[in-house]
Design a protein around this nucleic acid. Structure first.
Lengths: 227, 227
DNA sequence: CGGCTTTGTAACAGTCGCATGACAAAGGCG
DNA sequence: CGCCTTTGTCATGCGACTGTTACAAAGCCG
């Protein structure tokens, strides 16, 4: 997948530059905004993976912006990390109550801030947690139980779903029919070996129905593999 | 289902008591463990919504336990908040890198700690924030206990209401019947798995009565999901 | 090119999972 | 108390999914 993106909202130019530099070094695509209004505009155009927000800003304050972000359903799920010079307990709690996902007090350690951003990021990008299985243009999300080939959804029965899951766990690896029976059907269920063929056939049909090459390779005398 | 649960892992009895007291006052159902091993046992039996973890513990250290929690797929998504007397930057970063979702340094403000726990909790249970849950044209207000489909109000029984709430907390995600029984009916209530079917049916009927497509998806062999 | 093995696939019957309607029990409320 | 709503369970029926088989097609080898 592509680079993670972050929206940096900070009115003070010097601070902005330092942060932007570090964020870029960290591998983020950085968008910057100097005011809350500017930030809201950018949010509508291209929602980032993450928002880094300074509390103290003229006009629209960071906390008010945070509140607005968490009010709109489209932006609600974007993590907001708030930075502030206000170190009082009440302020920190208020920031967190307003919907901020983390609150970092100035002066902060840049290394720790980056670590905290990565924490937020791994929430949004389950890929890094290894949740979504991908290979080529095939994407399988175990959480939603959905399979996509490019943009179109592929409808699979339970067995074909498990079969594809197995293949996606080790793309390229050849699975014998016995190994597939073990993993897909279960250790102590007895079914004919040839049944695997039929289900592989059905999986192939489902995957190629809406166009696209057959991603499953038959290895004569051995079994099947993905790609 | 109503009360959120937290697993408190702390070897020092005095600390444990203070924390447990505050957590209970905050509305949590508190499970406590004095050692890492004990914690792992409890995790298997009844996974909590949240884990509060002291770094310094004899035998299995907090950080090692955290690593293990994040390694197992079944517990990976449970937020872990780590408490530690180790305030060095390297330690904080290490804690966060290991998979902790937040890192609080002793001595901490109890109020802030609770605020941070609430932040983690609303990831898992968005409803506790009291914000309106939305998906498509379905809108659920936890405050007023009202559900709307577009402009028209939908009347639901208590069980259907909790069911829809659960679905709305993670739209798209497939919930097994067991997971729904856990969340909607409660951890230790015994009802037939098939009862879920009936209530999903009732929820469907209520949602589609005044027109509109069926928003609930049946995933054969797995469970149900919203959208 | 035949003969043999291995794989692809259509067809079919059986099974399993799910939706639905009915019903009795429990609970809430005037 | 009696009415009404809600709840959990069951029986039934339908349809999707599954495993098997039979036969066609493809690969391999002399």
């Amino acid at each position: 997948m592509t680079q993670p993106s972050v929206l940096l909202v900070e009115d003070e130019p010097a601070q902005r530059e330092v942060l932007a530099y570090n964020l870029a070094a960290e591998g983020f695509v950085v968008q910057t905004a100097a005011t809350g209004a500017e930030a809201e505009l950018l949010l509508r155009e291209s929602p980032p993976d993450l928002i880094l927000l300074d509390w103290m800003m003229p006009e629209l304050s960071g906390i008010e912006l945070c509140r607005r972000i968490k009010l709109r359903p489209e932006t609600r799920s974007i993590p907001v990390v708030m930075i502030s010079a206000r170190s009082e307990e009440v302020d920190r709690v208020r920031g967190l109550e307003t919907g901020a996902d983390d609150y970092v007090v100035k002066p902060y350690s840049m290394v720790e801030l980056m670590a905290r951003l990565r924490v937020q990021l791994r929430r949004v990008r389950p890929v890094t947690v290894g949740l979504v299985l991908e290979h080529g243009d095939i994407r399988l999300d175990p959480e939603t139980h959905r399979v996509h080939r490019g943009a179109v959804e592929v409808k699979l029965g339970p067995t074909e779903f498990r079969l594809l899951t197995t293949f996606l766990e080790k793309p390229g690896r050849v699975f014998t029919r016995e190994a597939l029976l073990d993993r897909v059907w279960g250790r102590d269920i007895y079914v004919e070996t040839r049944t695997v063929d039929v289900h592989v056939g059905r999986l192939r049909k489902a995957l190629t129905e809406k166009g696209g090459d057959d991603p499953i390779r038959t290895v004569r005398g051995a079994g099947y593999s993905l790609g």
